[in-house]
Design a protein around this nucleic acid. Structure first.
Lengths: 233, 233
DNA sequence: CCTCCTTTTGGTCACATTGACCAATAAGAT
DNA sequence: ATCTTATTGGTCAATGTGACCAAAAGGAGG
């Protein structure tokens, strides 16, 4: 369909930056490209925007196809328009950010076209890891390293004045503050004091009635069982 | 050039949301459309993106053409992609936000193609005024009412953790805290306590060395003369 | 049962920030 | 000389934050 792009025409794609937290680490989902350009390179899942649908619709359809999620966090991240960003021709991309719990990703993983990479910023540059594979921004297709960096920064900027952190939780009907703290630490890339974290979260959400304690406590391998909470988003 | 749009093709434009503060009110610059669609309606200045230039470049060129500004605040605001937003066909728009001092706008006003409207949000809906003319979101071309609302909200969200407020000042080498407060009040749409405002601004900028007091004081019609400051951005 | 070990939970303390005020200061206007 | 106005400086209580400390509640191992 879009194998050869007309040189005098402008094309629009969406790219999906699906993020999750696995084992205390922020992860992004990448697909290996099957076609030129950047064949066999890792890239964000993307698709050309159809004339009949908005970019948001395109992105949501693409998401549905990749991950079975209900009520996922979804927002427009940024639009990347540099002239040289696609060697095929003139392609601009509207990137969307998705926050998903790891369980939803894991469920889709077997047989899926994507793989999950641990993501972090080193000096503002994207670094991705899976096992002993290391991908730097330059190893990714297009400007996807920059898109990922933009997404991580967006996440960091919004995590403590929006409810985006809760979107990574496995179960919003029963989670412990320790699990939530793990999410925050993964996003921020630094350790937090558990006592202070508890205080601020409870002040921000429990006293406003958006978050309440469940009766049950979580059984754990080690340590004191944690109280479970429920959050309304 | 783009009088008739191919129905099976997707087009990209930029729209420029130029904002300024005039007489203590937040203003936006609108042009009257000379061509269909929405002929004679007020609209944000816009232009189709050329195949050879990035959307940001297109927007900057358009800005240069409208306002002589050096070192203006300029950022990508949001990308609007709804299917029905342009009756001509399928057009998505990357909107850019510009913050300019009123003097720069006033200098360009005589003979310019735009006009300055006081802008405010009422129940989240854009309302524009110039003299006794009132424009509501539905009176504007395309989805430009929504773009303006998005811009005002972006401004409000960023004004107290970025230096964007200073970009509206007439002279960044000699301004009073009263002038800066006027900008903040125009953006936020509410009054601020001058004593508290002074305290927080000085704490945030003077103690970090980015802002320093000039020797001279400002002569005023009424009231005590204000100390003048300089800011590095 | 008793002692480590781990994690959750609760608390203190000093410090910074904020909103609501009050009051002095330095000009022009009457 | 007094009034008006805007700037500047200050207090005070309430709130939020970072750095700690310590108790509580489990499991694991002796």
């Amino acid at each position: 369909m879009h194998d050869v792009l007309a040189p005098d025409q402008l094309y629009v794609t969406v790219d999906l930056l699906m993020m999750t937290v696995r084992q205390g680490r922020l992860n992004v989902l990448l697909s290996r490209r099957e076609n030129a350009p950047y064949r066999d390179c890792w890239a964000l899942p993307g698709r050309f925007v159809d004339v009949g649908e908005s970019a948001e619709t395109t992105a949501r359809l693409l998401l549905e196809q990749m991950l079975p999620l209900e009520n996922a966090y979804f927002e427009q991240l940024y639009t990347f328009t540099d002239v040289g960003r696609d060697p095929r021709g003139r392609v601009i991309s509207v990137a969307y950010l998705v926050a998903a719990p790891w369980s939803a990703v894991a469920k889709a993983l077997p047989g899926a076209s994507f793989q999950s990479f641990q993501a972090e910023l080193r000096d503002g540059e994207t670094e991705l890891r899976d096992g002993n594979v290391l991908l730097r921004a330059g190893d990714l297709a297009f400007d996807h390293g920059r898109i990922i960096a933009t997404g991580i920064n967006r996440l960091r900027g919004k995590i403590d004045y929006t409810d985006i952190g809760f979107r990574f939780l496995e179960d919003r009907e029963a989670f412990s503050l320790g699990e939530l703290q793990t999410v925050f630490e993964a996003v921020l890339g630094s350790a937090l004091d558990s006592s202070n974290f508890r205080r601020t979260i409870l002040a921000r959400y429990e006293r406003t009635g958006r978050m309440e304690q469940t009766e049950k406590a979580e059984k754990r391998d080690r340590g004191r069982p944690a109280a479970l909470y429920r959050i309304r988003l």
